[in-house]
Computed example of a mutant assay.
Amino acid sequence: MRVLLVEDTDAIQLVIEALLTKLGLHVDVAKNGRVAVERATTESYDLIFMDGQLPELDGYEATRRIRKHESLSNAPRQIIIAMTADVMPGNRAAFLKAGMDDYVAKPISESILSAILDRWLVRRCGRI
């Protein structure tokens, strides 16, 4: 299974990448929204973890562009999970409105990642 991790903070990126790898996933990393759009529109991922606040292009706009590409090219819809440390009321609705499928708050633990993977990848693929 392939996952795109979109995270600009090195320490967070290293921790989440290590956890995902430990769970048996192949992880590609994008450090900004522009690169995330490039990768998501040229490659296929089973799941994308998208930070909300990113340089060059924030996670909201990156997601809207990915969804637009999917719609225009009849590409399969990729699962996009918002990741954020900003847990203010209304954020979940804003992420979903931008086209993300789910939302997880940072800090992210292995158990939280496992639950997200179970929820979305098992639903789509029948297994991880």
Rank of each mutant, 00 (worst) to 15 (best):
R39M: 15
E61P: 07
N32W: 02
L72N: 14
E38W: 04
P76V: 10
K97Y: 04
M1Q: 02
C125W: 12
D46H: 13
A105W: 08
P76T: 14
E56V: 13
E7L: 11
G59T: 13
H26D: 09
I12A: 14
L54G: 03
M83G: 08
V29E: 02
A18L: 12
L117A: 05
L25V: 04
I112Q: 14
Q78N: 03
K97S: 12
D101E: 06
T41M: 06
A105N: 11
D86Q: 05
W120A: 00
R77V: 13
A115D: 12
G99D: 05
L113F: 09
R39E: 13
D8K: 07
A75L: 11
L23R: 03
I16S: 01
V104P: 03
L14P: 02
Q13D: 14
N91E: 14
I66T: 10
I128K: 13
R2E: 06
S111G: 00
G24W: 07
W120R: 04
I12G: 08
A93Q: 15
Y103A: 02
G59N: 09
E17Q: 15
V29Y: 03
V29N: 06
M83P: 05
E70G: 03
I116G: 07
V27P: 05
D10I: 01
V3Y: 01
L117T: 00
G24Q: 04
C125P: 00
A40E: 13
I112V: 14
E38C: 00
R127N: 05
A105I: 09
I128L: 13
S114W: 02
K97V: 02
I81E: 06
R64A: 03
S73Y: 13
S111Q: 14
R2M: 01
L47I: 15
S111C: 01
S71D: 01
R92T: 01
I66H: 09
D58M: 15
L96H: 06
D58F: 08
S109K: 08
I16C: 00
Q13W: 04
K106A: 08
R127Y: 10
I128G: 00
R67G: 09
G52Y: 02
I80G: 07
V6R: 00
D86K: 03
I48F: 08
R123M: 07
P55D: 10
Y45Q: 05
I81F: 04
I66L: 12
A105P: 09
T84H: 12
R92E: 14
I81T: 07
